[in-house]
Design a protein around this nucleic acid. Sequence first.
DNA 1: TTTACAAATGTTATATATTAACGATTCGGC
DNA 2: GCCGAATCGTTAATATATAACATTTGTAAA
Lengths: 164, 164
Amino acid sequence: MTASRPKSVFNAHGHDHSACISDALTRAELLCNEQGLRLTAIRRRVLELIWDNHRPTKAYDLLHTIGQERGNAAPPTVYRALDFLLDAGLIHKIESLNAFIGCDAGHGQGHPKFLICRSCERVAEIPSPEVDHALAHEAKRAGFKIDHETIEIGGTCRACASEA
Amino acid sequence: MTASRPKSVFNAHGHDHSACISDALTRAELLCNEQGLRLTAIRRRVLELIWDNHRPTKAYDLLHTIGQERGNAAPPTVYRALDFLLDAGLIHKIESLNAFIGCDAGHGQGHPKFLICRSCERVAEIPSPEVDHALAHEAKRAGFKIDHETIEIGGTCRACASEA
DNA sequence: TTTACAAATGTTATATATTAACGATTCGGC
DNA sequence: GCCGAATCGTTAATATATAACATTTGTAAA
């Protein structure tokens, strides 16, 4: 919980990102302790690699890195760790990119929603009770019971727009 | 533009689906004529196969069908047709399923949004100015310029819920 | 109408993404 | 220490998608 944490990942120039990583790992350990889950070495390392930056990470990038570090790693090594982290709510999958991003709990109580900058490739998780409410309203109108929401907004962040 | 067209694809029992298909193909031809695009035999057939029902269609299902019909077909055959139809706005990709659905223009002026029933696998394209407005508001707050929205809501439709 | 260029398609190969299946190991409770 | 469950190693298969280059076709200018 460092003062240098940026308000938005889109203004992340020179922020103390090591704090993001260590905070995420600390939160993961707390959550696993609370829930009796085992944050094994592989799982922890995968989470750490995903938090290496604020860009979504691809499964095969993880596979290559883990493979180099351990001398061996097959796809299931990575996908099992990803499944665990997804189930634990520690990461999210970005469907439109086939990639994974650390959960920073920025969605609050609602479903996660993402702003994805196509220029810097950073992804911000945003809360929006307004969007949640509007979608709940649409679902109710259609008699549709919502289980899961995939909300991924692609575009250009403020920082990249002002650079252009 | 047939009277038997259902209000929702979730209440599509016994509707005259051939009208859905022919309407979609007619609209495609009009749009291509207007815009100077070429709706070739392969592209037209792929669009027709996607409109075969109101469920998302996978690329390799198309590949197998086209392959049988033509005696030959490699992945690029299908993916190039899909790219064309996507660019023309005639189909949408459902990112969370890696599958494709015909555009029925049900999103009106806004970005497309989908209700996806996990039980009957039907997909409904819904308009929602309310959701569009809420997302535009969030984007403005973040200084984010929206290019594209992926909004895919998974759950259970009314018809499937009442069957259970 | 021939030529020439661009668009579309054919073809081969490969990269990326994901899961199945089964054996070996390790962890935690008894 | 023993046992069952969870985790991991390993091999293989399946699913999704793109790169690269050759060939053909459509179209419009010369």
